[in-house]
Amino acid sequence: MKELITVRDVSFQYPNEDKEALRNLSLSVYKGEWLAIVGHNGSGKSTLTKLLNGLLLPTAGEISVEGYSTAKEDELWDVRRRVGIVFQNPDNQFVGTSVRDDVAFGLENFGVPRDEMIQRIEDSVRRVNMSAFIDAEPHHLSGGQKQRVAIAGIIAQKPSIIILDEATSMLDPMGRKEVIETVKELNEKEGITVISITHDLEEAAKADRVIVMMQGEAKSQGTPREVFQNEQLLLEAGLDLPFSLKLGLALKEQGVPLKEQYITQEELVDALWTLHSQG
């Protein structure tokens, strides 16, 4: 698989801090994958995000996006148009006085022609189900509506990599599923690479790959099945097991002889059904 982002031996220290926020981090992001990044509060996830589009520069090491280095000023623009970030707090992202203007602003920056711009704005706002609010002021929306608009703003830009930094944390359960589905569609149909930073382990369990961050280091990388095997590490990293794994363990404790670990609910129900039919 083609490597899109390369992070090599990267460390980062905020000015006036005595501890590094990221330490000797190396990782790759591949074209078309859905990568979940999980980790405790303060483990360095958002810092990494800001390094990936050159908002912050590494104090050591190197980051490149499709061959462009974030450290070279004349390549920064090429990096930024490829990496679209939905930040943790949408308020910091809004610039326009209406949802329409706000989405437009990002596109004007990239020189999208006017006709196409109008098309893209309407399309992206519709995709996140916010068409009824297209003339509303972004700062005067509800918490979850703000997150939907922030996502529309990035979708409209059609970046090759979308980073969601806890971008659905304020959505109701169905809304969250819907929005994740929308992004999943872009991921599958248009090959957009997705990096999703999340505390929702059920969501992470559905990713192609998971990275566990802990104290500024990547402690574990692999498929969800591999990563969620290691209960000890997850607990140390301030995490927990996804629902189906926990329920699986509780069922075993009750004497149900499940053989494996099942990381999705569908797998667990199927396994139970097989046992039940044999019993």
Binding site: G39, H40, N41, Q88, G143, E166, S169, M170, H199, L201, L235, G238, L239, D240
Partner: peptide
Amino acid sequence: LDEPTAGLDPKGRR
């Protein structure tokens, strides 16, 4: 408390 645990890690949430 208005969604006081949004943004907390799973251990912190609990």
